[in-house]
Nucleic acid binder design. Structure first.
Lengths: 207, 207
DNA sequence: CGATTAAAAGAACGAACGTTCATTTAATTA
DNA sequence: TAATTAAATGAACGTTCGTTCTTTTAATCG
């Protein structure tokens, strides 16, 4: 056999992205073979090279497009000039919501940085730092305005991101809690880490 | 050449553990070859099989002994009957301190669960859940006593562990902050997540 | 001291890896 | 419709993988 009736390049490429995302997230980049990806797509391994020059480029594509998408989505979500407390809430809710449907991509983007060759690593790392900077700058503005109390904004930003990224190590669709419950719980926890939130939420238990 | 003068089995096995721990943490289990580990130890690949039956058993050994060590260390650190707030502080400080010198093992234990074959996975997962249970039970006692305010103790326990595990994705010995600074910052953040801590620390910023 | 055991080397195994190539067939274009 | 391009196949490449085997040498034990 050769070219399959009805097959279109762009569609196959998208299915390759979709399946490799799943597999990389489940087993790790190094543990997934091109033949395995191809089988999941329903194609021979050689056909993958019509769409991506090699395995490394496939990983880089996944990570770059995820980070690009995340930053672009935040850009259109962010409200210019918003007060820090509201901005942090907005970002947390945005992050959780955006993350929810893309747990594989989030997982890969924070776990497979080490699998990237130097050139690709630098590109992805730059985007990752940009996002970290978004979180950090909200924290900084909150600290300056006196509505947050954070000892180290950079570390706090990283801790928040790690906390949220940790969700998909245990989250399962059939689990005890649905996504909106998880959203709420994490929103509260993140606000606490920043030292923000309504006073009674933070303090009544310590009375 | 054959057996090297002065070589003792138990010592070589320990060097194998040490080097494979480093390599697995840096590159991931699947991306590290037995030859690579052997080279780091200063031995041929075949010699590894005098000490471990195969690669999988090596990973399982690392993870099981780490979790065993962690639980044993906490057992001897824990103070029976201690009040929840003090117990949580003790656990957080213990966790950070214990984690600090073992970042590779911590990283592997939470990241390479997926690389374990089912039998080994169950063994490690059981220990992991035991530790999660330690954190959770402190949170529960605190909630009951009214000194913590946590919406979901199980999720909170996991979030705390994820937060702490996230440290070694960025911590470098030559970094801006030393370990004792990081300890302090994370202790504060974890207490906040639990809704504990002195009132003025949590609330003055929101006045 | 001789026999046995432990710990290494080095070669080799089959399997799987990422990737390339020639070929075939479908879709597109002139 | 003929020529070209795009998208697939299946075989094959050299390499590396985890692992096994035989052999050699050091340590240990009777």
């Amino acid at each position: 056999m050769a070219r399959i009736a009805g097959s279109i390049g762009a569609e196959t490429a998208d299915r390759v992205r979709e399946q490799s995302l799943k597999l990389f997230a489940a087993k790790g980049y190094a543990a997934v073979s091109m033949r395995e990806i191809a089988a999941a797509v329903g194609v021979q391994a050689a056909a993958l090279y019509n769409h991506f020059p090699n395995k490394q480029a496939l990983l880089a594509d996944l990570m770059l497009s995820h980070m690009d998408g995340l930053l672009a989505a935040w850009d259109s979500e962010a409200v210019a000039g918003e007060a820090p407390a509201e901005a942090l809430q907005r970002l947390v809710r945005f992050h959780i919501r955006y993350h929810a449907g893309r747990s594989d991509a989030v997982f890969i983007s924070y776990m497979e940085l080490r699998s990237l060759e130097p050139e690709n690593f630098m590109k992805v790392e730059k985007l990752r730092q940009t996002y970290e900077g978004v979180v950090q700058s909200i924290l900084e503005q909150g600290v300056e305005a006196g509505v947050f109390r954070v000892e180290d904004t950079r570390i706090c930003a990283m801790a928040i991101i790690a906390m949220l990224a940790g969700v998909n190590t245990w989250y399962r669709q059939k689990g005890r809690l649905n996504l909106s419950q998880i959203e709420g719980i994490y929103t509260d926890m993140v606000l606490r880490v920043a030292g923000a939130g309504r006073r009674e939420d933070l303090c009544s238990a310590a009375e």
